[in-house]
Design a protein around this nucleic acid. Structure first.
Length: 129
DNA sequence: CTTCTTACA
DNA sequence: TGTAAGCA
């Protein structure tokens, strides 16, 4: 009754390579059962992989995701886990806002240069026409 | 043919 | 992480 998955099953389902799954394992994010050399993943492993990929989408490093995921502790209501996650999320938000600020600044400068180019080209055109 | 490990890009 | 080599 315990659904299991081969390294391929999960790789295909989540659109990642088997290399990635082994890589995540090396980083301590995954710990599939070992049946005679080959890996056998269970539902818990699948869930962890799901969380790893979510963390990736949120911009967290594998180490950060590992820190949070490995903190899973139903007995304690996952309070510590939530606290750390909240901290990471806020930190990430601040970083993104900082990046957004920089991007807007660069965009502003680029547009200034763009305008100067257009003006310059317009002047030369008028002179010839 | 597929998985696994190890090493290198 | 991709790729490749050498095994099982």
């Amino acid at each position: 009754m315990s659904a299991t998955y081969s390294i391929r099953d999960l790789a295909q389902e989540f659109g990642v390579t088997t290399r990635s799954l082994r890589f995540y394992e090396e980083k301590g994010l995954l710990s599939p059962e070992r049946n005679k050399q080959t890996r056998t993943y269970d539902h818990a492993d699948r869930t962890r992989l799901k969380l790893i990929l979510r963390g990736k989408r949120l911009g967290f490093s594998l180490d950060e995701s590992a820190e949070i995921i490995n903190m899973y502790d139903p007995k304690a209501g996952n309070k510590n886990q939530m606290q750390v996650l909240l901290g990471k999320v806020r930190e990430k938000c601040e970083q993104l806002q900082e990046q957004q600020k920089d991007l807007e600044s660069m965009l502003k400068d680029l547009r200034t240069v763009e305008d100067r180019c257009l003006v310059s080209m317009a002047d030369k055109t008028e002179g010839k026409v």
